[in-house]
């Protein structure tokens, strides 16, 4: 098995130490950074996502893989930057104001990172103005909002309205999720997409990026 193929396997098995060592060696031997990412790392995370969707993997397996991916990616990032390669998209993510729950949001953030997105995690209990500021400073393509409480769901609408009032709504896509949130609610509040779980959130983010590019 070639070294880059072992990178795929190391990420699949959530072995950050191996993923890092293999990447280091591959780069030293002159491997193309973008090829490592697109040819091995992202396919590995896609397979991780598939196994998670099929209920073959639990969250710990998924997150350990994402951690291995991130370790390798951090090593590659300087080469990617110098070659002008872009992330799959830039995402600002947070749990909305008044809501302290962040497990689901953290999962989505990890999965998005594993999927090649640049993620800016604002944490929990995030007021609309912080989302606005983050969109401006990061040049985000997507804002991902999370809520776990029925009484904090309205803060999703408030955040989307604030993004509109700040003149940012047209240049970003908004995706929402969380236990009480539904597809219908997402439409009602003017979000661009809803995801039921973390791995579906990556597919949604990719669709939103494609739609954004096509627009």
């Amino acid at each position: 098995m070639s070294e880059p193929s072992r990178l795929y396997q190391a990420i699949l098995e959530g072995n950050a130490k191996d993923a890092l060592a293999i990447t280091q060696q591959a780069l030293a031997e002159g491997a193309n950074a973008l090829e490592l990412v697109n040819g091995h790392m992202i396919p590995a995370m896609d397979e991780v996502g598939r196994r998670f969707e099929n209920e073959d993997y639990f969250v710990p397996e998924l997150l350990l893989s994402a951690r291995a991916m991130k370790a390798a990616l951090d090593l590659i990032r300087p080469q990617l930057a110098s070659s002008g390669a872009q992330p799959a998209g830039r995402v600002v993510i947070g749990t909305v104001k008044g809501d302290l729950h962040d497990i689901g949001k953290n999962l989505v953030a990890s999965m998005l990172e594993g999927g090649g997105f640049e993620v800016h995690d604002l944490g929990a209990d995030v007021p609309p103005e912080k989302f606005i500021e983050a969109v401006r400073t990061t040049g985000a393509d997507i804002v991902a909002l999370s809520a776990l409480l029925t009484v904090t769901m309205p803060a999703m609408r408030t955040t989307i309205e604030a993004l509109s009032q700040a003149g940012l709504r047209d240049r970003i896509k908004v995706m929402v999720g969380g236990a009480p949130v539904t597809d219908q609610y997402a439409r009602e509040i003017g979000a661009d997409g809803y995801s039921e779980n973390a791995s579906a959130a990556v597919a949604l983010a990719r669709r939103l990026m494609a739609a954004r590019t096509a627009a």
């Binding site: 639990f58 710990p60 397996e61 997150l63 953290n106 999962l107």
Partner: peptide, 9 residues
């Protein structure tokens, strides 16, 4: 604990 659960640690 949240981190422990997430990573099965």
């Amino acid at each position: 604990h949240d981190l422990g659960l997430m990573y099965g640690d």
